[in-house]
Design a protein around this nucleic acid. Structure first.
Lengths: 202, 202
DNA sequence: GTCTATACTTTGATAGAC
DNA sequence: GTCTATCAAAGTATAGAC
């Protein structure tokens, strides 16, 4: 929301704070992208970017909110916008490709999802469940398009396929990070092949 | 290894220690199954089962090793042994069914996998990568059987399908835990449908 | 070998000074 | 708005009683 910074700057004020928050966010993204979220405590990242840990708490409320903000900001700026008619599988394959360059962000994502499953992490839970819900909705829409235009088999439910594609992407990414011999790309290709409409004749 | 306990009991002994370790493990499984791994620190679980946190360190070395031991012990005892000719998809569907009763163990599994992705968690990394490698190998074997007997389409690579099935199971489990309206069962059914051999005639 | 007592370091959070 | 000071709780490590 760049507009917000503009508006509030005029009337006196905490424009500096907004800018500072953005600066902290940018530096944090760099740190996470290269170091992962493991050895990255609230204090460690504060030290790294030259502020006190209390400053981070001030701007982001808690460690978990900082993590969510970092992940969302970095995935917003990651990669070009996808064309409206891109196939869901191509989207996922493309995202897998760009993710290989920033393992730290994938670690961050994975730890946020794990935290979201716990009972007492409302921030992570809200982040993960809305992300999955939005992704399912968006992908299902694309899938219906593909089915209508005959580029994907039409005998399967779009939302179920969307959930399946998301699950496969996340899970294969994980397997590949743990063991580079895991057939991430091959498995995605298999799924794409399975979703192809049956050849009408041959 | 019950044999070990027997043998060493004879020669004077730490049979008591082995039994105690097992007792701690059993109690820990109960605690995790109902509470999850979130609010369950080394000290909290020690308090819960009536020992000091130092005793847990003594038997398990570190928190992470305790977590791995708890997960492995509980998944060993979870459910009947699967018949040799069970279909891979049926295995995963069955496992999804039993997992619904023990969300705490799924949380534990998820947090172990997330930790495994970090750079400085060798114990979790060893656990997760060997688990995935073994699962892929075992599932691929079953898939080849199914392909040979004509119960699964044969135009896809068995290892890639194995990785895909594992990823789908894990990812859908996660989505469902975050949001019960996620189509876990439907998506697994879709995958099963896609893997069916094409009808020879109709 | 088994286990307790204890101490050490680091964490995330907060209160209050400026 | 930002920092210093402080807090309770965490995981780990060690010494030594039994």
């Amino acid at each position: 929301m760049p507009d917000d910074a503009q508006r509030t700057a005029r009337r006196g004020s905490y424009a500096k704070g907004v800018a500072r928050r953005q600066e902290i966010l940018d530096r944090s993204i760099e740190v996470f992208a290269e170091r992962g979220s493991g050895r990255t405590s609230l204090r460690a990242i504060a030290r790294e970017i030259g502020v006190t840990h209390a400053a981070l708490s001030h701007y982001f409320g808690s460690l978990e909110e900082l993590l969510v903000a970092v992940y969302e900001a970095s995935s917003d700026k990651g990669g070009e916008p996808v064309p409206d008619d891109a196939s869901p599988m191509d989207m996922m394959i493309e995202s897998a490709r760009t993710n290989r360059d920033v393992p730290g962000l994938v670690q961050l994502y994975s730890s946020l999802v794990a935290a979201a499953l716990e009972d007492d992490h409302p921030v992570a839970h809200a982040f993960a469940s809305t992300r999955f819900a939005n992704l399912r909705h968006e992908l299902a829409e694309r899938i219906r398009q593909q089915q209508r235009s005959g580029r994907m088999r039409a005998d399967v439910d779009a939302v179920a396929v969307a959930a399946l594609v998301i699950a496969a992407s996340d899970g294969l990414q994980t397997q590949w990070l743990l063991d580079e011999s895991a057939p991430q790309h091959e498995a995605l290709a298999v799924l794409e092949h399975l979703l192809q409409p049956p050849a009408p004749e041959e």
